[in-house]
């Protein structure tokens, strides 16, 4: 791939990603009042995060078992309202320790 082609691709990649993010952010200046839309926007983060986590987490680690262990520990810590960092570190540590015992 020559440089010209790379930069054309980069422009499309970065440019489209940027515009998708920024145009709605800049265009909507006022508070919305439609109850359905407000409710939708309230639920959307939880929906997105759930979809991105399950089942992807089971394929992120070397074994679905260690991922499951990490998931369970993360849920337990989250139920106790630990901070994002604490939950994330606990999940990583669990995966690491679990994989030390798994035959992989």
């Amino acid at each position: 791939m020559d440089n010209l082609q790379f930069f054309l691709y980069l422009l499309l990649l970065a440019g489209s990603t940027y515009l998708i993010r920024v145009i709605p952010f800049v265009a909507i200046k006022d508070k919305l009042h439609n109850r359905f839309i407000l409710s939708f926007l309230y639920y959307i983060p939880y929906a997105v995060l759930t979809v991105m986590t399950i089942p992807a987490i089971f394929y992120a680690t070397k074994s679905p078992l260690s991922a499951l262990a990490g998931l369970i520990v993360a849920i337990v810590f989250a139920l106790r309202k630990k901070s994002l960092t604490v939950v994330a570190v606990a999940a990583c540590a669990t995966v690491f320790v679990t994989e030390c015992f798994l035959p992989i």
Binding site: Y46, L49, M52, T53, I57, G70, A88, V89
Partner: peptide, 15 residues
């Protein structure tokens, strides 16, 4: 492998 669950841990901590 361990680091790759950091992001999911965060998501779980939010949901």
């Amino acid at each position: 492998s361990a680091l790759s669950v950091a992001i999911y841990g965060m998501f779980i901590a939010i949901v």
